[in-house]
Amino acid sequence: MVPVENAAPKIEFRGVAKRHGAVQAIRGVDLTIRSGEVVVICGPSGSGKSTLIRLINGLETISDGEILVDGALVSSLRGKALRSLRTRIGFVFQQFNLYAHLTAEENVSLALRRITGLTPAAARDRALGLLDRVGLADKPASFPHQLSGGQQQRVAIARALAMNPDILLFDEPTSALDPEMIGEVLGVMREVARSGITMIVVTHEMGFARQLADRIVFLDEGRVLEEASPEQFFSAPVHERTRRFLSQIRSPLHTTDG
């Protein structure tokens, strides 16, 4: 395998800005993510983390600058081209967002049947395989409301993997989970991260970041404040704001500015 640092750019942000009305969510982000890289994006709430990854698959439209995925300008894609890009990018949401009327297996196989055009039997086989991969081989017939949060999020990861994407985006995948369920989801994410897929993970799980990230990007008020390897990020953060964030995450009751 090509070492990550030499791999081709997969996603490039060039002077990206995003405004929500009067609110400036992203202010001039330049960032290159290489093929096969696992990048963790962290930062205080409201720093624009979610917005940043939602711009990649066009869930939100960019206000300024450009984003390229495999060299293609995302903002220039419309209709079929945009949908085809999205099938190559798996997205995992904080609130799971499973289709409530479908079983776990159907949640995973829907896009395979309706977009890829697999036969129902083939789609089902692939879905069952993916559910097995996320440790839910015994739950194909369960509906979302019959599953725990951790199980729902694992179904959502299987669904994101269904189309065999080469990029996976995670938007705070463990933030809506009870603490005892975070481990099972992180376990699946670890397995996926090691498969060589390009991954961008918005998370506050610093253990995950330390273990699996190739790079950590610290975002504050819509700007990239710091960009470093995990070792450097945790042991020698450059910015005062980063140090404060890290100390707050480590001991939430401790405040440095109060």
Binding site: L59, R83, S84, F93, Y99, R114, I115, A156, R159
Partner: peptide, 26 residues
């Protein structure tokens, strides 16, 4: 819930297919 519409759009479903496969059945 609006989240399901986003999930379907993120998967690459067209507007009409989001309606057909996700919204109308529910």
């Amino acid at each position: 819930p609006a989240g399901q519409i986003e999930a379907a759009r993120a998967q690459g479903f067209s507007r009409i297919d989001v309606l057909r496969f996700v919204l109308l059945p529910q």
